[in-house]
């Protein structure tokens, strides 16, 4: 697991990278209800935000941040105006900047790589590779 100093530091770092204030969240769960990837997430988006508020490292180590498709449904609907997609990106960025990635070119099967439109490959590398 990627480690980030004391818990307050994690929250501060995420606020800095995302430009968002995680403490605006009132845990209503609209983000979770709107989420595309919810079916394969280990933490609901609402829970990810809670972990960030608490400075818990589960937020960095969960699967949810990697199956987010950056569709901005959560961002659009958040009644507190938090750009949740940016929080998710910040959690990915902290991982990626330390070399922790979930998608590397050599791990993509050749048949899939050559079948999908190249925009999917480009986008997936931007989001998921270091």
């Amino acid at each position: 697991m990627v480690s980030v100093g004391p818990s307050g530091e994690l929250c501060e770092k995420i606020s800095e990278i995302s430009g968002q204030n995680p403490f605006l969240c009132m845990q209503c769960g609209t983000c979770s209800a709107s989420c595309t990837g919810i079916g394969v997430m280990d933490l609901l988006p609402r829970q990810v935000v809670r972990m960030v508020q608490l400075g818990r490292r589960e937020a960095l180590a969960c699967r949810s941040i990697w199956v987010c498709s950056s569709c901005l449904a959560c961002t659009t609907r958040c009644p507190r105006g938090i750009d949740i997609a940016r929080l998710m990106e910040a959690l990915r960025a902290i991982n990626l900047r330390r070399g922790h990635e979930v998608l590397s070119p050599e791990r993509i099967p050749a048949a899939l790589l050559t079948e999908v439109p190249q925009m999917a490959v480009t986008c997936a590398f931007r989001k998921l590779s270091a």
Binding site: T36, G37, S70, A73, L103, A120, A124
Partner: peptide, 20 residues
């Protein structure tokens, strides 16, 4: 009509694309 199809997750979490 404004739901996401799963997008680039086709390369990482295909289940998202399949179910969505």
């Amino acid at each position: 009509k404004t739901a996401c199809c799963g997008s680039y997750q086709v390369l990482n979490a295909y289940d998202v694309v399949a179910s969505r």
